[in-house]
Design a protein around this nucleic acid. Structure first.
Lengths: 342, 342
DNA sequence: CTGTTAGCGCCTTCAC
DNA sequence: GTGAAGGCGCTAACAG
């Protein structure tokens, strides 16, 4: 009925050895007689001894744990990303602690605190959409906990990050539509000051310029990413005299809401108006009428790559970390075209 | 340039106090003069002191961390479940450590080891589809680490679990189709010996009996859940002389693959053959032709409820845990009917 | 009110 | 080859 996990001491007692000898034996120290090593290991196996990590952590200062903070686990993008993170981390014997900010800065702060207290070795963060104040991340620096941002990162230069070249994604999207003959191309934008949105906007403008299409401000509408807001944005587009013949949406969910609204208004999806989105939901492969194309951002790979970078940083000497160099890894997106019964 | 996190000792030294006084002050012990408390807290705040949890863990034996093990983070069901787990856990100041088994028993074992070494306080597990040997879970008992299984649980009686009454879900599904006039109702089954599958089968049989529909073994086909296997299963159904007019699929992904195959064979989805599935993917709300109906299993709630139960167990005295009573919480599923332009 | 001591489980000197 | 001692950060029991 003894319930506690066995310790090095118990093994020692059973064999009339000292704890340190047992410790060394378990680590195959060369100063221990093979016979002792054998005996120790046998008893350890029998008791199903497992080293208590918390104790080792206390000593070494390393927890072999990475923290992941992201907005929503339920969004396909993030669940794929964290899957990549977990796979890579566990391959390298790291554990993954996770928290979701629900796009709320306060929750984000709390999670950062919790992770700090937990003494994670490093952190992977995709920041909440409305986070403007980054002081809670600054604190991590003091503690020398390295952070790699992915997907959604602050705009300062003194951070590590793995992101996707969204401007290029937008370029591909616009050019794709242009080739299909569209010139009245609208964009349902996300939160205006979000970097990820500004990058898309930049791509939108640069592509129009390149293609010699005049920029029409009426073709840019905004959504706060809620269904209602997207419907309203779509409504605005449909009310124009010369409405768009193609719509690019900030992300898949916005696209789906927009398409839903358009359908309700008897617009034929991808016939009367063609849709293109960002993120490329896996389930598009099963839909009859997904957006014509979607910018794939490879979340699994982003997660993996970010974790790889974080582990590299963890392997550099502590002192050398702080001043950089700061890595900004930028992955190329790719426009996925969904061909259907057409 | 000082980088290590401040400790209680440093605060003590700065104030010429002992470490224990500082510790007590930080905990608002009543035996400490208000003045001291104030001074200590000021210095602590200034240094941005945060207690080192690993140290507290070592002492108390509690890590305030829950482990979650599930097959795939990317499956909508699980990402919703873990979202519920994380939300509930973080409300109660627990951290969540996670690992995905990828439905592989060996990986599952490794993760259990890792979690054990990490000394998580408790574990939430949805077992891998092909796990037959449960010895790795037995080991957790020795360590007195309580486990709550959810969704997919072993069939022994001496465990805690939160699951969904799948037989009832199947009953609803069959009766729904029957009311629509169907009598030739097929079932694309999952792995035969999986409990979750046998429950569905039981429901299938009991409903047919109740409805006085003769059981036709040709209407039950098997899929290992891969796309190819599902396509093959569907092919078998379509080759029957008197083929089914309705198909119930083991889960959403099987349903989508089946529908995809049927479409390719020029079957009109939900006209020539009606489809019903299990799990009710959120994205169905956006599809033109989702299954007619799907059994909603409320993964978020399952996750929440499982976590709640686990925390309750953690609050009982250690000694009292082992012998139970073992809770088996069984949630009612609900058939969601997808009405569309029809 | 506050300081001292001891110990959580482990590893790492240093000593024999 | 092995043992003893000390310490990682913190708290709890025992002294004052």
């Amino acid at each position: 009925m003894k319930k506690r996990a066995p310790t090095i001491k118990e093994i020692a007692k059973m064999l009339n050895l000292s704890a340190s000898t047992v410790s060394r034996a378990l680590h195959d120290s060369r100063n221990i007689s093979p016979a002792t090593i054998k005996r120790v290991k046998e008893v350890a196996a029998e008791l199903e001894y497992e080293p208590n990590q918390t104790a080792m952590f206390l000593q070494s200062g390393k927890t072999l744990t990475l923290g992941v903070i992201l907005p929503h686990l339920t969004e396909a993008f993030f669940s794929q990303a964290i899957s990549g993170i977990e796979d890579f981390a566990s391959e390298h014997n790291y554990n993954v602690l996770m928290g979701q900010s629900h796009d709320d800065t306060n929750r984000e702060k709390k999670i950062v605190e919790a992770m700090k207290n937990h003494r994670v070795d490093g952190l992977l963060i995709s920041i909440a959409k409305n986070t403007k104040d980054f002081s809670h991340f600054e604190a991590l620096r003091k503690y020398d906990i390295p952070v790699v941002f992915f997907d959604c990162a602050p705009e300062t230069s003194d951070i590590h990050s793995v992101t996707c070249k969204l401007e290029a994604g937008m370029n591909e999207a616009v050019e794709f539509l242009s080739k299909k003959g569209h010139t009245r191309i609208a964009y349902i934008s996300g939160p205006r000051d979000l970097l990820a949105n500004r990058e898309r906007m930049a791509g939108y403008h640069s592509s129009l310029k390149l293609l010699n299409i005049a920029f029409n401000p009426q073709y840019v509408v905004h959504s706060d990413l809620s269904k209602e807001s997207t419907h309203y944005a779509m409504q605005n587009l449909l009310s124009l005299k010369a409405g768009p013949t193609a719509v690019i949406a900030f992300n898949d969910y916005v696209a789906l809401d927009a398409m839903q609204y358009a359908s309700k208004m008897n617009i034929r999806i991808n016939k009367d108006i063609s849709f293109v989105s960002f993120s490329n939901l896996p389930v598009y492969n099963y839909m009859e009428n997904p957006p014509l194309a979607s910018v794939e951002q490879f979340p699994y790979r982003q997660g993996q790559r970010a974790t790889e970078l974080l582990l590299e940083i963890l392997n550099t000497v502590k002192g050398e970390r702080a001043q950089g160099p700061f890595q900004k890894i930028i992955l190329e997106p790719r426009l996925f075209i969904h061909t259907r019964f057409s």
